[in-house]
Design a protein around this nucleic acid. Structure first.
Lengths: 347, 347
DNA sequence: TACAACAACTTATGCGCAAAAGTTTTAATC
DNA sequence: GATTAAAACTTTTGCGCATAAGTTGTTGTA
């Protein structure tokens, strides 16, 4: 690792002159010397030591990206293509602005914040719901923070949030189902927090608007742990007999459910209609192709990153940016035939 | 950001004493003082400035993870769940060893190496095939490098490689197909480099062993660009009429192909058998469930990370670590009925 | 009683860089 | 040709930390 000092000595100049050339401060250096130094820099392939630079400048050019770890809870959520698409979009965006990305996976907001301090990161993108506790912890750090898909239970609004119109997404889809003639529509999810809560709300609003009464048992709660999932899905298939359509909180769950239906000889959409949410490969290549709610994950990542970069530069940004969804009508939602329970004795 | 100096002043001690307590050098400090300092550290929630520390120690505690960008080439590969699973595994492993992860996505090995120098990273994990040029460029940097899934065309072996027994994976699968009675077996891929080359070789070996002659036209080359993929797949479906089975280089391609077959009314596995490679969600939830070659991506990530950590610590490691595959027999490979071309006039 | 040997400290230095402050040279003005 | 200003430099300082080198005080030993 060649240093500025070494270069200065070799050229018999001062370090400041070299430093000025490196930073393109042409006003301070004669063209003649600039050329000499530049040539030398190119020759030795000078690369700055960023630790020294950061220390001197009290900045880091690092953007931290913290993902809430879920791998310990569910076995397969880190395989989520959503995550890599989001990360990819963020990385591309910040790289173009000269920033570096440090990735951290944890559920512990305190640990995340400790790391933020340690590295003196210039900004932080938090993905996944941080609790209201987390919001409180994070308030201490003056660095800009942008959250992605974060809902506050207590309604706290301390950070910028880039989210999706989750509520409206399911609302539109369930409205579509209703327009097809469905009246018995269930909602499938594994919890009722954050994003799932918003999607549930949209579902309820559509029901209400159509004068359909929602009851607790219309909520199908999937237990996604590997050791329970099979049993849980079977149970849901059983409960599904009284319904003609199921609004799933994600494409993954829609596809999981359809696989179970297939195995039991229940046809989609002839016997029951299914809709997903996210619009990823899983539904796109499924046959029948999944009717789903589209979200633009790349846009989400880019938006989160550009918003954070603005804040780092001291610009004002909206406090909440809600991206729209759109309906992708494919083949898994059709007109209702009959309730599954009517088929019960034919199979 | 409170500094050691400030703490030392507040406590009327020297910075060295404080530093010693921070580093647990108990031999140097009396228990009494240690307690006082420790309490104070806890109270003010001291967090070291890692830039200063790195500068002083000439290390970084950073492990760089470079992914070869493919998003510009294909539109959907950054959505690959493989990537997030791999990253997740690496992150978890290095975090436990006290390292941080800097993520970089680029196709340009020079840029990657420039960053490696800039940040003085302690080690690097390269994912995806770096060309032989890349190997030469990287040789200049003395830092340990571990590659994942890298094949050298020229047979260069400069870095540790964590790979998969790709060749044997397809070999076993094609052998399985042959044992089911298949004789006309095609291979589907989008290129013939690196991993794909190895998988192709295994396929060829199985054919050869069974006395089946391989010809160029048995290689189905998919053009994965978004604007071409539909046409390309249709063409492949047409060529598939002369075959009874297709070995696909990935689960994704298997599922894409099956979707196209479905749309054309061609049944899997009744009319044609399909096998994938990777064993991800796409095939797992497909119906009929995809017969495929399993690889343990998490293990790949963990292995790469632990190997790199060993090298950083100066330990010897194997130069090449090849992980095994296993056959996952599900429902898309069965005995051959007849060639698709025989069905041509019935539909 | 002298003096090692060691424990328990403090002072001083340097990591590589940026930038403030200081110095010399050159050009411009009257 | 003196004065001033601007250009083109250099010297110095400090970012926060780790650590080498130095200092003091205490104990044990002959």
């Amino acid at each position: 690792m060649i240093t500025i000092k070494e270069i200065a000595q070799a050229l018999n100049m001062s370090t400041t002159t070299v430093s000025n050339v490196i930073h393109g401060k042409t006003g301070e250096v004669s063209e003649e010397k600039r050329q000499i130094i530049q040539d030398y820099l190119d020759k030795v392939e000078y690369v700055p030591n960023i630790n020294a630079r950061n220390l001197a400048q009290n900045e880091s050019k690092i953007i931290g990206v913290a993902l809430k770890a879920r791998a310990d809870k569910y076995d397969n959520l880190l395989k989520d293509p959503f995550v890599s698409e989001l990360i990819g979009a963020i990385e591309q965006t910040i790289k173009n602005a000269g920033y570096y990305m440090m990735l951290y996976i944890s559920r512990d907001i305190e640990k995340i914040m400790r790391r933020v301090s340690t590295w003196n990161v210039d900004g932080l993108i938090l993905f996944g719901m941080i609790g209201d506790d987390g919001i409180r912890v994070s308030k201490k750090y003056k660095k800009p923070i942008v959250c992605v898909d974060t809902y506050s239970i207590e309604g706290l609004k301390h950070f910028t949030n880039v989210g999706l119109d989750d509520e409206n997404g399911t609302y539109e889809m369930v409205k579509h189902m209703i327009s097809q003639g469905h009246k018995k529509i269930a909602f499938l999810s594994d919890n009722s927090n954050g994003v799932d809560f918003a999607r549930l709300s949209g579902y309820k609003r559509a029901l209400k608007e159509a004068g359909i009464k929602y009851s607790e048992k219309d909520f199908f709660k999937l237990r996604p742990r590997a050791e329970e999932v099979k049993e849980s899905i079977d149970e849901i298939c059983e409960r599904a007999r009284d319904y003609t359509a199921i609004m799933c909180v994600s494409d993954l769950y829609a596809v999981m459910l359809m696989a179970a239906f297939y195995d039991k000889g229940i046809r989609v959409p002839e016997d029951i209609s299914i809709a997903g949410f996210d619009d990823n490969q899983l539904g796109f290549y499924h046959r029948p192709a999944l009717t789903t709610v589209h979200q633009d994950v790349t846009l989400k990542g880019v938006t989160a990153a550009t918003t954070l970069l603005k804040q780092i530069n001291g610009e004002e940004t909206d406090n909440e940016i809600i991206l729209p969804t759109s309906l992708i009508i494919r083949d898994t939602v059709s007109i209702p035939r009959k309730k599954l329970s009517d088929l019960a004795h034919t199979s």
